[in-house]
Nucleic acid binder design. Sequence first.
DNA 1: ATAGGGTTAG
Length: 710
Amino acid sequence: MTRQALHQFNNFHHTILNILNSTAASLSQTRQAHAHILKTGLSNDSHLVTKFLSLYANHLCFADATLVLDSVPEPNLFSFSTLIYASSKHNRFNHALRIFSRMLSQGLVPDSHVVPSVVKACAGLAALRTGQQVHGIASVSGLASDSFVQSSLVHMYIKCDKIRVAHKVLDTMPQPDVVALSALVAGYARQGCVDEAKELFDEMGDVGVEPNLVSWNGMIAGFNHSGLYSEAVLMLQKMHLRGFQPDETSISSGLPAVGDLEDLEMGVQIHGYVIKHGIGSDKYVVSALIDMYGKCACTSEMSQVFDDMNQMDIGACNALIAGLSRNCLTENALRVFRQIEGQGVELNVMSWTSMIACCSQNGKDIEALELFREMQIAGVKPNSVTIPCLLPACGNIAALMHGKAAHCFSLRREISNDVYVGSALIDMYAKCGRIQASQHCFDGMPTRNLVCWNAIMGGYAMHGKAKEAMDIFHLMQRSGYKPDFVSFTCVLSACSQSGLIEEGWYYFNSMSGEHGIEARVEHYACMVTLLGRAGKLEEAYSMIRKMPFKPDACVWGALLSSCRVHSNVSLGEAAAKKLFELEPKNPGNYILLSNIYASKRMWNEVDRVRDTMKSMGLRKNPGCSWIEVKRKVHMLLAGDKAHPQMAQIIEKLDKLSMEMKKLGFFPITNYVLQDVEEQDKEQILCGHSEKLAVVFGILNTHQGFSSSSN
DNA sequence: ATAGGGTTAG
């Protein structure tokens, strides 16, 4: 070696030592040093190897780190441990587990340092089986009494929703620490086991552990997560009284509960606290404030908080979209959504799902379906919340094909067993005229909740199958479910569809009598429909007058429809008068009234109503009737599965409904069925083999219409 | 070289 070379080498060596001792060595420095080490053959030094492993891993260069590990003939426990620790720390859980299994295959016995990192990886992946195996290995290696190991196991079992197992592990700890206890408290509370959480929290003192800020926060978050809003808020107040300063976490966990209680006064008070304590720039706090104002219907305050935010955050954006959606400001929500998209902030599943939910809840069904498509093009994977948000849009416009596609999607993503997905599928199929498919979904569900039962019952009610609906109502109770107000809406509407007056009264009276549920406005609407359709119009009217609250448009609408059926002018006028006040822009009400006049040949009155409509710029919305037609076609096709062209017919129907809604009105009914009476339409669609030819004829006519206009 | 609590979509 020449003198110069030796000098250079010494310089290098010096540099390398400096680099290795500084924790903040840059990636290029690390690479340079590593290259040098490889050239000069110092790579058997296990201390150096470990140092490189840790440097590479902390720069998230796991491939390089693994390469270093590969270059050593026999890495020691310390080297493995370092890499596993770093992998876990940076959420590379699978990597951590791979390295761990390599470590085991080299015959190395894990120690109390490496096990917590491995367990953390299992927790991160919610990999219960692997976690249990690691637990076994730790026990065999005599590490089960190490407090760090135990603490990590507690955490892992909580993440895997095995709270009781976690509790057992904790009970074996001679001195459970505040960390593990707080995690367990939060775990219980999150799962809705409030009593256990409270008990554990209250008994912390007895074990010699004082609950700290984190313990309190865990309780608040847990209560919020389980829907126990007043408990959450109470906890927040209590901790403050006990001398704890609520921090960012306390506030962001407690505020959503304040919003759900619509306690604006407290919300504003907390907002003041946030400003006073300078924690208003925390992104979680900002999101929670937006959420709270949104829930309290204070949209301008909500937007103010958003505008004052100094850093763009997708969580806050999502909260804003949800808030606008909640307050029916669909256009604004869409604008915000597109703005975010344009600003280069990455939209996540929640952003897309919120937007889809917003559209399907606010009458923008086509937009919801289009957003779903766009979302997939954008490469964002829909989840088990996205599907139940999308499906109502399919049902609303009887878009069976889209609904089926969503069903297939949930089967592929293995989320079809989710109770919300299942319930939404049941409802979608029913609305598309496929009650058999609804029943099939219901039967296939491994777990059910009340929502599922209500969905299938509502489906039968919708199809006018009162017997089936009532059977389900009783079967549900025998299966141990207590009916709620939705269940009664379903069973009552089933009765009203089939004119079962006696049964209707029975269920209506049993509601408050046997089940302790106060009748709501929708239950009264069902009863009005039931009585009205049976021709007991005066009785229906007195039902409305006896209601303990202000009748809404549904109730008056039910009366008006009944008056149409029975051609009752005087009561029809009374109902219409109320409806014109409640929803002046709904053309359906004017049409119903004019139909009543027409049935009595009161042509002057007919003209008067039509003139009013015209002067208000209203016109008949044929889209609604078309969707009804379509439902019937779906229903009828379901009974004729053998028809060779069924698939094409349905596909055409779906495409058509999309196009027509886009056009803003409904050519088919206008164009072809314009002058056909209701009962004739019925005949066209429910006749025998000609029916399909007729439907096809309609479609072909429309096809010609639509292609020539394009 | 180990550790616990947070917002927004049904």
